[in-house]
């Protein structure tokens, strides 16, 4: 019982929450780019699954985790491009085209796995990187600065995306296209070009999220993501389309999961209640949003294809 408040358990809980947040963080930051430019992509989970298989298979064959991550990037770029063709050029209904990508990714990643791998074999994991100096700080060092390399990359995406969206010319165009594509177009911004770019960024990060998940778990399996891609989409709304908010959502989801697991491990949550306890991350996320009572508005052009007025 009292085991919950030992430092070791506290460290593990926080570190575990951070690990669980990483794939969600990659995927939601990517989805955020698309939505800021006005495109809802429901296919994230499918891209993640294909990225996960690609990353897993590459590491299995080459023993190089970075090469695996790179393949995740490649698969993400291709599927981002496919999404862009569907949503931007062909102006497909955004609530549905993504479901096609999801079902395709779910089936095709499993099919490739069964054809090329068969029984799950373990692969190498990411190297653990202890940040020199920082990792020696008591408590904080173990919780924050003693993770596998990919964790730092994920969190580096937050300031990077903040910078891109708020400080760069490209970011300004993304916002303009998402809020008022007609005006952006009249100022000579290529609405389609910007949306292609954001969807490719989104696809890339979803592919990376999948590859990172598979490599971190050192394994691939049918439906490895277990619908994490959908959670990632929800977290974009939770984060009100802002990188810090999205990070907060991913961390909240990860932490609640991690805390529930620790409570189960310590026997504080009885086994007969384990299903009820497993609802906690979802319920807390909804309640948090209710309490915060957001005043943020989605990008005005979200889900609306752009058609230039004549």
């Amino acid at each position: 019982m009292s085991g919950l408040f030992t430092e070791a358990v506290l460290v593990a809980t926080i570190a575990g929450g951070i690990r669980l947040a990483v794939p969600l963080l990659f995927a939601s930051i990517g989805e955020m780019f698309g939505q800021r430019s006005g495109v809802l992509n429901l296919g994230v989970d499918g891209v993640m699954l294909l990225g996960a298989f690609g990353g897993y298979y590459t590491v299995l064959k080459t023993d190089n985790v970075w090469f695996g991550l790179l393949v995740g990037v490649g698969i993400g770029v291709v599927l981002g491009l496919v999404t862009a063709v569907m949503s931007v050029t062909l102006k497909a209904e955004q609530g549905i085209s993504g479901i096609g990508v999801f079902l395709f990714g779910l089936g095709f990643s499993d099919l490739l796995f069964q054809m090329w791998v068969g029984t799950p074999l373990p692969i190498q994991a990411f190297p653990k990187v202890e940040i020199p100096g920082l990792s020696n700080i008591p408590f904080l060092g173990e919780t924050l600065f003693s993770h596998s390399a990919v964790v730092y990359i994920a969190f580096a995406m937050v300031p990077l995306s903040m910078f891109i969206i708020n400080q760069t010319n490209f970011g300004m165009k993304i916002r303009a296209v998402g809020e008022n594509p007609e005006a952006a177009d009249s100022l000579g911004v290529s609405v389609a070009g910007i949306r292609y770019a954001t969807l490719i960024i989104g696809g890339t990060l979803a592919g990376v999220a999948g590859a990172a998940l598979a490599i971190d778990l050192k394994i691939f399996q049918s439906n490895l993501t277990n619908a994490a891609g959908f959670i990632a989409i929800a977290l974009v709304y939770f984060g009100a389309w802002r990188p810090l908010g999205v990070m907060g959502g991913a961390l909240l989801y990860g932490f609640v999961n991690s805390i529930v697991l620790q409570l189960k491990t310590q026997g504080i949550i009885p086994r007969s209640w384990s299903d009820i306890a497993a609802m906690a991350p979802a319920v807390v996320t909804i309640l948090a949003l209710v309490v915060v009572a957001h005043r943020f508005k989605p990008p005005a052009a979200l889900t609306k294809p752009f058609e230039r007025a004549r």
Binding site: V9, P23, L217, I219, N226, L261, T265, A277
Partner: peptide, 25 residues
């Protein structure tokens, strides 16, 4: 004997994190 049922037959990440929690404990 610490027994944890994650609530899912398919959530590999949660199974992994559960094992991690066991090791910590």
């Amino acid at each position: 004997v610490k027994i944890v049922y994650t609530g899912s037959f398919s959530d590999v990440a949660l199974a992994s994190e559960t094992a991690q929690a066991h090791v910590t404990a």
